[in-house]
Design a protein around this nucleic acid. Sequence first.
DNA 1: GAATATACTACTAATTAGATAGATTTTGTA
DNA 2: TACAAAATCTATCTAATTAGTAGTATATTC
Lengths: 146, 146
Amino acid sequence: MLSKKAKYGLKAMFYLAKKYGKGPILISDLAEEEHIPKKFLEIILLDMKRQGLLMSKMGKGGGYELSKHPDNIFVGQIVRILDGPLAPIPCVSKTAYARCAECKNEKTCEIRKIMMQVRDSTAAILDHTTLSEAPKALFIVTKKTK
Amino acid sequence: MLSKKAKYGLKAMFYLAKKYGKGPILISDLAEEEHIPKKFLEIILLDMKRQGLLMSKMGKGGGYELSKHPDNIFVGQIVRILDGPLAPIPCVSKTAYARCAECKNEKTCEIRKIMMQVRDSTAAILDHTTLSEAPKALFIVTKKTK
DNA sequence: GAATATACTACTAATTAGATAGATTTTGTA
DNA sequence: TACAAAATCTATCTAATTAGTAGTATATTC
């Protein structure tokens, strides 16, 4: 499940993508427009600024804007910043691998094999989709013939 | 993220699948073999019995076993019972749809479009994989040419 | 230096995850 | 029929995470 934090963050980023090139946008405006609690949004935007996706300016005429073109910001990056790794279990994460404490044999673990597929397909979607477009990736599901 | 509950549940189900046809298995044995806290496992198995995936027998010689052939039990069912809907956001769930409170227009929501894809690919994997096999579904990712 | 913004610190409330304890019911068998 | 083994039920409990709020500090512009 995507947290509200990530959902709000994505909403905010898509909003800023639409306004890209028009100068800084106020947190207050963004919060009001997208129905996001303002103080919560502050935290979210700050997170993304720290990770380099946003620029901010204080004082009059200030606000937030994307630090690069929407074409170059992927949805996967945003989700990882706000919700952590995409992998459903840590033992299949590429960005935050961790062994399962109770696992007897990682190589033969059926759950791991399955969740690896889930991770890969999710990552393929989110890491090919940018803020400027509808999803690029196209998925074709076929049955493997035994 | 998959909860520990779901991970333990899957482990237990794969274990019972291996023992299918050999009569009831004790919770204690299962817990010990797979390193799952016994009392927690009780709850998990009971959940799955209530949903019809397991049969149990009380008293001496009792225990748990699959209620049908492993070929006919899909990983997606188990995950849904233990962790709820597969969809990353409620507005793309097929089994538990709910509108997002803050959403202005569901039809045009970019987040929704993306998460719909994630849901569909996840479901395609989990609902084509049974307890008796390695995953059946094969995923091919291609870039949509604009 | 006043007004306007973000940045930072520090809470709090609600929910969920991950269990544990102990009593009860069912069943096989001595 | 009594006993022991096993699942089942009831009732909590604690810790972590999520979601959000309040108030203060700091930077910028006019």
